[in-house]
Design a binder for these strands. Structure first.
Lengths: 212, 212
DNA sequence: ATTTGATTCAAACGAACGTTTGAATTATTC
DNA sequence: GAATAATTCAAACGTTCGTTTGAATCAAAT
């Protein structure tokens, strides 16, 4: 897909990613984007029709592969487990690792991607709602089922709540890591993704396993 | 303070709260605010100088009392505990209850307030940074100290991480409750604040207590 | 009743926005 | 190499934005 994409289109997407992460959706103008991408202003409307469509294309480019990777990883763990339920820690790893992998894969711009995640979640504009719902709905269903097999004592409702909590731990940790660095006065850093992942999984597993 | 405030100023603040929660900071124009508040457009600049100052005033009006209530509640629990460390569940209650109280106190507009919280956290604009830092820094220090007394086996660094995780559980739960309602297909509702608080505290306490 | 200060108002300011246009340019196809 | 399609470009469109202005209105104090 990226091979077949025009250089202009790709440059616009990359510039959009960087600028939106830094300034937000509304505060990022098409003029700033096209200036950073060194393309003509009208190129945006030519390649993406509208600004909203550009934003959606930019988010989909990143979120699609990540959700796919999550399901692939869960598949692998389920195959490895055979008849047994997948271990709770493995389920959480399948849920969280692909995001952190995406962050560390790209030397720079890793944090940009997390900012976009936080922005898209908080954005009240209606045009992002379908994307967020798609992002959560079908993926969560698979993980919910795996979770219920791993923790059969949990009621269906309780499992939904706790999966929501686990998502909160992860999303808040990675999207607002600067808060942790600030309140700990630099003592805690998120720079090591593997250690961060281990901490998050450990915390969530304990919360998920606790007696209802 | 609200007694001494001019009716115009108050009407602007209330309208701002509602509209910003619905549409975001940038997407909410002063013209929309003043129309909803039934005041003249220039009244905003007269009473608040600038739009940014208006946003800050609106957020401070809500966040200030809540952080105060958190510390007051923690004080009370510490006094009740005497020489002993405050129970972990009490610490978490002091941290989270004041927010949910604020939500249920106002029949309507309760969810508006949570949306504002999520928006302010995600907003990349520089002018909100001081507010977010003030919101977290001094308050977190008090709760961090109480947490270390309750869980002396935790290293200082580990305590910072886990407090950050607990914040994530709470903030994501309340600010994105619609995601939970969607993924659970309506089975889980956040409408009962007391039950929600109990669930969150239970989950976080288990995660915080787990062996390092 | 008059003066003084605070508040409201209609109107306009300049700047920035997303989008459109139509010609110029480049790439592709026959 | 001519014809056709795809892309780029400078310029402008109409709108909306936050802010300012200066007169009008209201309140309080003399």
């Amino acid at each position: 897909m990226p091979k077949e994409m025009h250089a202009t289109k790709l440059a616009i997407l990359k510039a959009t990613e960087r600028l939106v992460a830094a300034h937000g959706f509304e505060a990022t103008s098409l003029r700033a984007i096209t200036a950073a991408a060194k393309v003509n202003l009208a190129a945006v409307n030519y390649h993406f029709s509208t600004k909203d469509a550009l934003i959606l294309a930019m988010l989909n480019r990143r979120l699609g592969p990540i959700n796919e990777a999550r399901l692939v990883l869960l598949d692998r763990f389920e195959k490895e487990a055979g008849e047994n339920p997948v271990a709770l820690e493995k389920i959480l790893e399948a849920l969280f690792r692909p995001v952190l992998d995406e962050v560390s894969r790209r030397s720079q711009g890793g944090r940009d991607f997390l900012r976009l995640l936080a922005l898209a979640l908080a954005e009240p504009s209606a045009y992002l709602k379908p994307l967020v719902e798609k992002e959560f709905s079908e993926k969560t269903r698979r993980f919910h089922r795996a979770l219920r097999r791993a923790l059969p004592r949990l009621s269906e409702c309780e499992a939904h709540w706790r999966l929501h909590f686990a998502h909160g731990v992860f999303l808040h940790t990675v999207t607002h890591s600067e808060v942790l660095e600030c309140t700990s006065r630099g003592r805690c850093r998120i720079s090591d993704p593997e250690a961060t992942l281990r901490r998050i999984i450990h915390f969530c597993a304990a919360g998920l396993r606790s007696a209802p």
